[in-house]
Write a protein that binds this DNA or RNA. Structure first.
Lengths: 92, 92
DNA sequence: AATATATTTCGCTAGTTGGCGAAATACCGA
DNA sequence: TCGGTATTTCGCCAACTAGCGAAATATATT
């Protein structure tokens, strides 16, 4: 859960997740949305993968990333637990 | 919103928010829950205040912190927007 | 095997962060 | 005004982070 919040603390990474919300994208397609070096973007992918927020899948020479919805759901639970009483799921 | 996610990225700060969920506490009372120097804790308070996640109020010589629920609610909205479709409020 | 394309890994640098103790500030009571 | 308690601010340091370009890796095509 700590790695997840850490991953969410960077605006570029949050924007990557927002892009992925509308459908899977290859690394290159994601890079096209940002004015950053590919190596820099790859670093962001690494952080997001480590937090299990995105999942890679090879498709020939390209790697397609997809959003892992369940981890984001647990973020919502976690913040809701700071707010009021939880809404069921026993995590964090 | 960026400062908010940044503030949430540290486990000590998230724990402070959780403590405050059960009621307001003075800076000293919060410090008592952690094995960190007061100056270090004060730094965490500063980050949380800057993100408007906590609100200070002087009470004589002590400062009582309370949780700002609305900011946490907007975090939930923000993450939900990455997940599915939003649930109304137009923020982020 | 050689080339081309997509992506990641490898130093490197500049800036940020979290930790500390010591000093400064703010308020109260004698 | 002096002392005491609560909290913050001020250097300082070690560790981490985001950025880059160049080199390495992986896969497909010819």
């Amino acid at each position: 859960m700590n790695d997840v919040f850490q991953a969410l603390s960077d605006p570029t990474r949050r924007q990557i997740l927002s892009l992925l919300r509308d459908g899977d994208l290859s690394a290159g397609q994601i890079c096209a949305h940002f004015d950053l070096a590919r190596s820099t973007m790859s670093g962001h992918f690494r952080v997001l993968k480590h937090a299990h927020l995105i999942v890679p899948e090879r498709n020939g020479t390209t790697i397609v990333y997809s959003l892992n919805v369940s981890v984001l759901e647990s973020v919502v639970s976690s913040v809701m637990r700071m707010l009021d009483v939880g809404e069921g799921k026993p995590n964090d």
